Amino acid sequence: MFTVKYRTKPYVILCYEALFRNLKEGYRTHRKLTEDFNRFNAGYRGEKDVDYNLSLFPHKNFYIFHNIRLKIHNKNFQIDTLIVSKTFLCIVEIKNLAGTIEYDPELHQLVQINGGKITAFQDPVLQAETQKMHLKAWLQQFNMSIPIETLVVSSNPSTIIKIQQDDPVIYRKLIRKESLHLHLKALTDNYTETVLSNIQIKNLNNAILSGDIPHHPNLIKQYNIQKKHLIDGIVCPSCWQTAVERINKKWTCRSCTAEIKLLHERIILDYFLLFNNTITNRQCRELLKIDSPSVMYYLLKSMKLHYVGKNSARKYLAPSIENYPQNSDYPGKHKSVFQLFD
């Protein structure tokens, strides 16, 4: 098994974390904001759990792509995990829903019952079949035709799954992560005819990578964030006070005396996530409260960002998504669970 594209935090989570770092304290606990972030974060954790189960499957001829977003007919479609082999492709749609989920294949309805709250969701089996239709159309531009299977995997081990109709097909489509190996083994045993050559596999893998267009949401616009909602100053990641200055080539917090080596990198990356995918030397100086263009040039050069233009017209470009830190911190992240009940 070869993982061609590893799963990293998607832009949506990176953007939320950047927003929490830059919002004034009173706005960080906005109900809609935190609910949306928690939902995306739960989905990402569920995907990582299934990734681990998949990584243990002993099949050396599987090529794995995590979190792929392709375009067909000017529309994008997202696949949580795509398995490529010489005999078939498999789309894996991952759901992390707690409590009890009831699926009705006749009504194409998924209902979650959790803590007395009832929530309806899009039919995940139909969602995966729609992705299959899009992927089939996408493959046609490369003159490729190969069997495509779909699996919907429930990643939460405590979830109770109830299927309203006695449909044997659904039991092979809507599964728990613990049985993923069994279903992949059944698909491998069923598809024995080689459809793609080694060259075709290589070309397909390259086409998927080059066609992948990660979704980058604009949270500032989505939540109508204004300048008054954002922190004016440089925040210390240790004490979260706006008391940081650059002194003797170091970022130093006047409040807690912490020294933060690469603080400018986090601030510039947050700018890319929240505001624009390019930045100039002047914009960086305004952002970091630095007067010297030469100092700013040195800091930007140290980040090894690609750029276009020369001299004062030079624009530095945002890095690709896999180059963003995966251990981003934000205020309130490390609160004790007991504080929830205070």
Rank of each mutant, 00 (worst) to 15 (best):
D329A: 11
T8M: 02
Y330D: 04
N218V: 05
L187A: 07
S154Y: 01
E102F: 08
K249R: 15
Y27G: 00
S145M: 10
L187G: 06
N277V: 03
Q112A: 00
L54N: 01
N203H: 12
I118E: 14
P58K: 13
C256M: 12
F2Q: 08
T34E: 08
T8G: 07
Q78T: 03
H134D: 07
T150H: 09
K221P: 00
F62M: 13
K333M: 13
M144Y: 10
I201L: 14
N224R: 13
Q122A: 09
K177V: 11
N323Q: 05
E265Y: 11
P237N: 08
S294F: 13
I234S: 03
Q78G: 07
N276E: 11
A18D: 00
S158T: 13
K5D: 03
L70F: 01
T130D: 13
F77R: 11
Y52N: 00
E178I: 06
Q241V: 03
D51K: 04
P168Q: 10
N38K: 10
D342Q: 12
P147N: 11
S292A: 11
R282Q: 14
D270H: 13
P58H: 12
G99N: 04
Q241R: 14
S155W: 04
T34F: 02
F20A: 03
P319R: 07
V84T: 02
D189H: 13
K227C: 05
R282H: 08
I175L: 04
I91V: 15
T188L: 04
H215A: 12
A128C: 06
Q200L: 12
H30N: 13
I146D: 03
E129L: 15
V4L: 14
N248T: 00
L107I: 06
R39P: 06
L135Y: 06
Q141I: 08
V169C: 11
T280E: 04
V4T: 10
V308R: 15
V337D: 14
K95A: 01
C253N: 06
L184G: 04
P319A: 08
S312I: 15
E322H: 13
C236I: 04
I170E: 03
L274M: 08
N67L: 09
K250C: 03
E245K: 14
T34P: 02
V125H: 00
T100Q: 14
L263N: 03
V153S: 00
K185F: 07
Y324G: 00
Q127D: 02
Q78H: 15
C253D: 00
G115R: 01
I113S: 14
S85I: 05
E47P: 09
F40P: 00
I13K: 00
A207V: 10
E178F: 05
Y171A: 07
G309E: 12
R266A: 06
K60M: 04
G46Y: 02
H30E: 08
N281Q: 05
L274F: 11
G46A: 13
I160P: 03
I68N: 00
G116N: 12
E322C: 08
L110V: 09
I170Q: 02
P217W: 01
L288V: 09
A318C: 11
V84Y: 04
Y324D: 02
R172F: 06
M133E: 07
Y271D: 02
L70Q: 01
T194N: 13
E265P: 06
N205Q: 14
D80Q: 10
N198V: 05
V92W: 04
V295I: 15
I72G: 03
E245G: 12
I94C: 07
N76K: 09
S145T: 14
F88G: 06
